[in-house]
Design a protein around this nucleic acid. Sequence first.
RNA 1: GGCCCCGUCGUCUAGCGGCCUAGGACGCAGCCCUCUCAAGGCUGAGAUCGCGGGUUCGAAUCCCGCCGGGGCUACCA
Length: 462
Amino acid sequence: MSESVRVRIAPSPTGFAHLGTASTALYNVLFARQKKGTFVLRIDDTDLERNRPEFEDLIYESLRWLALEWDEGPDKRGPYEPYRQSERLDIYKQEAARLINDGKAYRCYCTPEELEAERKQAQLEKRPYKYSRRCLTNPPEGRMVFAVRFNVPGGEVVFTDMVRGEMKFDADLIGDFIIVKSDGYPTYQFASPVDDSLMKMTHVIRGEEHLSNTPYQLMLIDALGYERPVAYAHMPLILAPDGAKLSKRKHPESNLMLFKDQGYLPEALINYLALLGWNPGTAQEIFTHDELLQTFSFERVQHAGARFDWEKLNWINGEYIRKLADEELARRLQPFVPNLDPATIERAIPPLKTRMHKLAQAVDYLDYLWTDPAPPALDAATAERVRAAINVLKDVPWEPEAIEAVLEGAVEESGVGKGKFYTPLRDIVTGKKVSLPIHYTLALLPKEVAMHRLQRATNPPD
RNA sequence: GGCCCCGUCGUCUAGCGGCCUAGGACGCAGCCCUCUCAAGGCUGAGAUCGCGGGUUCGAAUCCCGCCGGGGCUACCA
């Protein structure tokens, strides 16, 4: 038996917590738990320009909301601390120095302008660009500011991808890339493999955008004398409805906290995310966490990116809402209707349950309970029917069943259909054309309030 | 430009040479139920499997080319 599995996610705190982070985290958690391994959260905050500490908290909050808990991380103890890259700068400096000493990396004094010129020239000559290695072969004199470049050995880089099988890259096409920026911070391409190695990651599960980065990192791992991870897994990207990659900048709707705020259940989002890019090969669509653990495998993950489909998410979320026990649904609904007391929410659940695909919709059905809709104008015949309703409602026990019974009777008496009879009542009580069934609509309101609204509508102040 | 990944109904997908007159799910349409809106039940429309060549008795499934999409190629991650 080999060493136990260790995997990680390494989000960077450069904005809200992203849907893609949740997706990657899910696959990591699934794999870690299947293998009884360890799931690590590392914060890749080496982008001095864009990092903000509050974004780090958003990552914690979002991941915890989804119940994707990590075993080691910046806010926990662990054998490989610290788990925040900005606190590991000495390590990268030391490793970079080691590479320089070994002749495997070198200082580069080129300015951004000079590099840009090199690139332009290459483009002009229609030749694939690779850094000229000027600072390796003929470094300029008298400059102080430098970055560190990796002396790319070239050759063929081969590795195993659990999704796509054996991958082969020609590293001769890769130019010497920067591993330490002139501000002293490591680049992702450097810090990531260093930490993965030092933190003893056995598998690297991440988004497909990193597939082409893998040879860069593998060469570094080799040069540093580390052991390579046993395998990688590059997961299909989540695409926006228009087919473009879901990005933070272009797609603010990929903000995880927004899902929470709209009333998506975390377990439903997880279920949908699991199905995006993976399928069990059966017709099953709804999975408990345990079922996911049992059935998930990298052999069945998709190779192509998948568009995020809100309609399907809504359906799955509705399925989860309907499956929730009434008390549990009431509990989860509370934050969405803070004006209502728990008893009222609980009474609203039975008719409400089948009508929501996300919890925030409860507001549309229930806001008449804490607002006072303006009474509509009624013609004489309608007013007469409303009075008939008031009449039968007056002495009835204020329960949905009883209300329904007497109202049915009144409808019978009136000679018009239920639709014609109930629509004005609905309008008067809620101010809307859509509501819960009329007897529930009435029963949820205190009797005096309901009666007052009906009465007021039949006696307009003049 | 170079390298890499990918390409089946609108969307997510099943399919790994004959069981496919291409199956399922979401969405959509119709009907039933029904006081509105949902939920639920039933029925239906919807994919010449990106295109063109091969291989084969036989291809969505194998091979080649092309086209299309995405990713990487940054002193972003």
